[in-house]
Amino acid sequence: MEVGVFAFFAVLAVVSALGVVLQRSPVHSLLALVATLLAISALLIGLGAVAIGFLLAIVYVGAIVVVFLFVIWLLNLQRDPGEPGHLAAKFFGAFAVAALTAELFAFFVRAPVGPPPAPAGYGSVDRLADLIFRDYLVAFEATSLLLLVAVVGAVAVARRWPADQPRRSGAGASAHGELRRAERA
């Protein structure tokens, strides 16, 4: 990957990541998050991890952040008025930021100059498939089962059962329910 291209996407990723936390409007933060993810996926593709780079864009930009957008709409989040936080929160926040920055610097100082040579076929779809469908098949399938259980559990927890809330039955996970809530919002 050429240094200029790398620098462009690296700066874009950092600036848009700052945008995620500094924007007052949640939708603008979300758009900055999309830009961050796209810049990172461009970096991954440029560094040879082509499959992971595109999958990041497909899964996060194409699906997960859209769900964030739904959450913002359904909760009807408005612009953050920007109230000053607690002094204690600021103090500990500054402390944490300083610690993280120091750690990052230590990492950079000790990191070897120049990347090690990548193994043949690194980052290709074939290699990724070998890893998740042969070498780590059980772990991969167990993870997907865990996610399925989590989804079913989330629906079970979030659902309002008719016995508890007789007047709002059926306002569960249906698309109609979501729409009606969006309409109210």
């Binding site: 939708v27 758009l31 796209l38 082509v50 595109f54 497909i58 194409g62 859209v66 957008l69 290709s124």
Partner: peptide, 21 residues
């Protein structure tokens, strides 16, 4: 592009934001 289909799906995913935003 060796991964043309992945590119296709990734780019189409961005299109959602146009209508939504």
């Amino acid at each position: 592009l060796d991964v043309g289909v992945l590119y296709l799906l990734a780019v189409l995913g961005i299109g959602i934001y146009g209508a939504a935003l």
